[in-house]
Amino acid sequence: MALGDDALVLSHRLGEWAGHAPVLEEEVALANIALDLLGQARLLLSLAGDEDELAFLREERAFRNTQLVEQPNGDFARTIARQLYFSVYQELLYGRLAEGGGPFAPIAAKAVKEVAYHRDHAEQWTLRLGDGTEESHRRMAAGLTELWRFTGELFQPVEGLGPDAAATAELEAEWSARITDVLRRATLPLPEGPRHSAWTAGAGRQGLHTEPFGRMLAEMQHLHRSHPGASW
């Protein structure tokens, strides 16, 4: 359910870009990624129960997504920074889950192909923005820095989900190596500072979220909640 929530929430955020992207090709690309993630969310949530009940009738405190994916879009650079951090994580994680057997394996095996594309897209844009103009470099660096403190949570062990502590440490090391490499090629500095806030690490997974998340859910759930029991 934690992974389903990640995919659901990030998909929603990307859906907010529709009609606002900097270039038509990105309207297509961002919507495409959002759709892939929504597809993953539906599969994962269906494992746990009724997808619509889980998406539309849970309150903020019951959502298990990481705080990273609920962060508002900001400018295009911030959106790309979020995509980069998350898609590298997701690609590594799903790769492992696909090999690991268990209930997630078939879903992960399907999703990992999509996620490789998402990671490539984020990486290509990180290079372009980092090594583009002065302004794009500045914005990309800012986006990466602002979201840095939400990245530690990705590697907090989640109860009942996949890799054990040792595997998680390995995942984190690989993630760091990949991010470091992309940022170097993009002429961007690796953000400094803590990878999580003073707040409990792994907060999102425990249902402790950031303030913008409640508003996002209010918008997402409003219509469904206004018509209890209706089918659509």
Binding site: L8, H12, G15, E16, A18, G19, E27, V28, A31, N32, A34, L35, L38, G39, A41, R42, L45, E51, D52, A55, F56, E219, M220, H222, L223, H224, H227, A230, S231, W232
Partner: peptide, 18 residues
């Protein structure tokens, strides 16, 4: 898109706008 009342409808609408 952000207010679609079911995940299925949301996916259909996103695909359409794309």
């Amino acid at each position: 898109i952000t207010r679609a009342p079911s995940l299925r409808r949301k996916a259909i609408l996103m695909a359409k706008v794309q």
